[in-house]
Design a protein around this nucleic acid. Structure first.
Lengths: 174, 174
DNA sequence: ACTAGAAAGATTGATATCAATATAAAATGG
DNA sequence: CCATTTTATATTGATATCAATCTTTCTAGT
């Protein structure tokens, strides 16, 4: 007779999970794309995440941290950490918000803008090459589907609503 | 006249990048899905990544590290690190490969299987709920597109081909 | 005004991620 | 068989990610 501690999960289940898990597929694609852009952007001295973050700071008015974290769908504490190396490089300046002294305003410095400007053509090339390699129409469709997924997991103010990305809303819309 | 150090990137460019960058969208979706599954799996004591990793070890024959890293599209060094907490918990055992003494074989322990079995129904529920919330047909399509992207960035044996994920091939196909 | 609660960030600790590099063992070509 | 190369994995150091928790400041209700 079978021993009670022998829990066997059928191999077919493993194959099912491997083939269907959206989370796994998303992690894999995210890692693959991160490497692609990290490699391309390396000569410009920044990573894909730093590029996205700095680009999101390029606005008429310096934004506070919360909305930026929400836009990037990252934890607020992750943003705090991600800013550190950019501050050290002098690319981003974190200043007190005179209107709300709890808050901070994130400002792209002149050098930050210069770095971003150097990275921009690389991003354009890399993204164009990627688009081209994808089957026709995949790119726009994938973008749309990813956005749906990102936005969908947000409406859950369960514990104490401490997480940032609840409203991926029109943070940057203007 | 404009000062030479004043590099201005138009806000419209920022909006373009935000809206079109597949890498950014992938990172956001990956973070959102990771949180969704991490939250759901927390009672079972593992994260989405640990779930995927352990599930990929549930096979007839214990696999070496390289193919597992390739399957998950992660760096081999990331896999080494990711195994540490699982080894400490006694869920995964890393043993020498008698056939190739450079290599290791990754074995799911009895307790590991038990933990995985406890997590499985949670995964099923969570994934079913996710599927249901997605517009009709989105799930399968997204999965397909993500797989295309993951597989596409692989055929680049540029530097010294040190990276794992070159062949996402039929590692687990049997 | 006061006070309770909410909101914005920061800190700490754990894990995840990858580049650069190192080590050991297998494979390969004389 | 030996030297070179390749392959499999580990180590170190930096950044990314999040949970839990803390402080400060603002807002609401009285």
């Amino acid at each position: 007779m079978a021993m009670s501690n022998s829990v066997e999960i059928p191999f077919s289940t493993t194959l099912l999970v491997r083939d269907t898990c959206l989370c796994l597929h998303a992690q894999r694609a995210a890692r693959a794309l991160a490497r692609l852009f990290d490699d391309a952007l390396r000569p410009a001295g920044l990573t894909n995440g730093q590029f996205s973050l700095m680009m999101s700071l390029n606005r008429p008015e310096p934004p506070p941290m919360g909305p930026v974290a929400a836009l990037l769908a990252m934890d607020q504490t992750t943003l705090t950490a991600a800013l550190k190396p950019l501050q050290r490089k002098g690319w981003v300046s974190v200043m007190e918000n005179p209107k709300d002294r709890r808050g901070r305003l994130l400002v792209l410095t002149g050098e930050g803008k210069a770095a971003l400007a150097r990275a921009l053509p690389i991003w354009k090339e890399t993204h164009a090459a990627l688009d081209q390699k994808l089957p026709d129409g995949s790119s726009a469709r994938l973008r749309q589907d990813l956005q749906t997924v990102s936005g969908m997991t947000d409406e859950t103010p369960k514990p104490a609503a401490r997480r940032a990305g609840r409203v991926t809303a029109r943070v940057m819309a203007e």
